[in-house]
Design a protein around this nucleic acid. Structure first.
Lengths: 193, 193
DNA sequence: AGCATTCGAGACCGAACGGTCAACAATTAA
DNA sequence: TTAATTGTTGACCGTTCGGTCTCGAATGCT
C-alpha cells in the first residue's frame, strides 16, 4: 500500500548534494547548505536518506560508480597509449578547472575522511584497486602493441600512474595552467615508453 | 612596562595545535579540541593568537618553514641523485606512517582550504615554488654530474617530481605499504635517468 | 467513503560551536 | 607602595549544529 508520492527526484537530489560536498568538503557542509541546494525540507531529507553521513555516502557512491564506468568505456576504444593520453587529459582538466577548484571528489574525501573512517577508506581503496586494474590492462596492452617499453611491470606502472594523477588533483587546487599540467602529463607518459 | 608573564611556551602551544589540525583538519577541529591539547584556557589562547584561523595560520607557517629548511639542509650534502632518493624516502615514510595517516599537512591544507581561501592558497603556492626551486637545482646538478639524462628540463622535472610526491601523500591516506611506495619512488627516479 | 501509509513542512531540541568579557593574579616602573 | 600593564580564568553570549517529532496533505487499497 503506497502512500503519498515523493515530490523530488532522488538522483537529482543526490547530484546536488554531491555538488555541495564536493565544493566544501564534508565537515564544512551544513545541513542548511544541503537543504538550500536540494530544495528539500529537513524532514524529507532525513526520511529519504537517513542522516548527513548516509547522504554523503550515497552521493559518493554515485560519483565513484560514474568515474569507474566512464573509465571503463574510455578503455574500450582506441589504442592503449591514445586512451591513456585522453584519460590523463581528462583528469588534467578536472585539476585545472580554475573557476571552482573542486578537483577530484575522491581525492578530497581521501584526504579529509579516509584516515578516520574505516568504512569510507575501504570504499575508496576498492575504487582505487578497480581503476588500477583498468590501467594495468591498458598498460599491458600497450606493451604488447609496442607502444610502451618491454621491461615495464604493468601493475606497478598502473599504481605509479594513478599516484601521479592524484598528485595532479592536489596541484590543481593551487591553480595549475593547462600548459603546466600538459607538461606533467607528457613527462609521465614518456616515462612509460 | 611588562605585565604578568606568560605561563606557556608559545612554540610548544603551536606545536600541539599543529598536531590537532594535522590530525583532524581545520573544520573538524573545535576550540575545545585545541584547549585540551594545549592546556590553555580560552581567553589565554585568544589573547595570544587572535582566533582559530590565525592560530591555524601560525601553526601552518611553522610547519612550512620547517619543511623548507629541512629540504634545504638535505640538499646541501651528498650527490644529487642520492639526496633526491633520500628525500623521496622521507616523503614516503610520511605517507606510509599507517598508525596515524596524517600525511603531509601542506597537502591536507591544500585540499581542504586552498580552493576557498586566497591568502592560504598564496602561502601554499609560495611554499611549492620554493621547494620546486630546490628540486630544480638538484636535478640540474644531477644532469651536470651525469646522473640524470641530458634532455631533461630541470624546472619541468621538478614540477613533475613534486606532483608525484603529492600523489604519494594522497595514497598514503588509504594505506600504503613501504614496499609499494618504494616501488613508486624507484619508478619515478628511474624516469629521470 | 474510509483507512492505512507515506511524504512534506517546520517548530522544536539539547549540544556544541566560535568568540567575548569582567574579575582577579602577577609582574615592572616609578 | 602604588599605578600601570599584561596574563589567566571561567562564566557567559548568541548562533548554528545535526537531528527529531508532530501534524496536515496526498496517495492506494478495500
Amino acid at each position: 500500500m503506497a502512500g503519498r508520492p515523493r515530490e523530488f527526484d532522488e538522483d537529482e537530489v543526490l547530484e546536488r548534494a554531491l555538488g555541495v560536498f564536493w565544493e566544501h568538503g564534508y565537515a564544512a557542509t551544513s545541513l542548511t547548505d544541503l537543504l538550500e541546494a536540494t530544495g528539500l525540507a529537513k524532514g524529507s531529507l532525513y526520511k529519504a536518506f537517513g542522516d548527513k553521513r548516509q547522504l554523503f555516502l550515497a552521493a559518493l557512491d554515485r560519483y565513484l560508480e560514474k568515474g569507474r564506468t566512464s573509465l571503463d568505456l574510455a578503455a574500450a576504444a582506441g589504442s592503449p597509449k591514445q586512451t591513456l593520453r585522453t584519460w590523463l587529459t581528462n583528469a588534467m582538466s578536472m585539476a585545472t578547472c580554475t573557476g571552482v577548484r573542486r578537483g577530484c571528489f575522491g581525492v578530497n574525501c581521501t584526504i579529509e575522511l579516509a584516515p578516520h573512517d574505516e568504512e569510507l577508506r575501504e570504499r575508496l581503496r576498492k575504487q582505487t584497486r578497480g581503476l588500477e586494474q583498468i590501467y594495468t590492462r591498458l598498460i599491458a596492452a600497450g606493451i604488447d602493441a609496442g607502444e610502451f617499453r618491454e621491461g615495464l611491470d604493468p601493475a606497478a606502472a598502473a599504481r605509479w600512474l594513478t599516484t601521479m594523477i592524484d598528485g595532479l588533483q592536489v596541484r590543481g587546487k593551487l591553480g595549475l595552467t593547462k600548459a603546466a599540467a600538459q607538461e606533467t602529463v607528457d613527462l609521465t607518459l614518456s616515462a612509460l615508453e
